[in-house]
Amino acid sequence: MAKIHVTATVNGDEVEFLCELEETLLDVLRDELHLTGSKEGCASGDCGACSVMLDGRLVCACLVLGVEMEGRSVETIEAMAAGDELHPLQQKFLEHAALQCGICTPGILVAAKALLEKKPDPTETEVRFWLAGNLCRCTGYDKIIRAVLDAAAEMRVS
């Protein structure tokens, strides 16, 4: 079966890949590029575990076709830490124990980072509604919300 050749930017690097038309960006990231930090929880845009930044916008990678990526740029959880330096959100998630099983964590971190870039001083309610597209079944969200608010406070200071 003929695959389609696509050139895109992934975490700052130009990459080429072949994909079948029915493959999503999530399939490409995971199965072709082996960037498995983005998770599949639903493949229907309902759980947010595959959240990535596509040309600066937060999307579910499961709702983007691989072929749509031609000439576009995606950032995944794998690009969140700067070298040895964790992003403040990553650090706060660790300090607040804001993860249990950790499967939703990459998507929530990517989504939370997008929020803080747009709104550095969100209220609890704003964080909750922004993260409504990211399901977590373990934590009841409490520690996640606290970690995001704490990271926001720290990022405003620094």
């Binding site: 964790l86 993860l99 990459p106």
Partner: peptide
């Protein structure tokens, strides 16, 4: 195991 889980490095069943 925290750092692996906030960086996407942790390997789950499908990984």
């Amino acid at each position: 195991d925290g750092v692996d889980k906030v960086t996407g490095r942790a390997r789950f069943g499908a990984d």
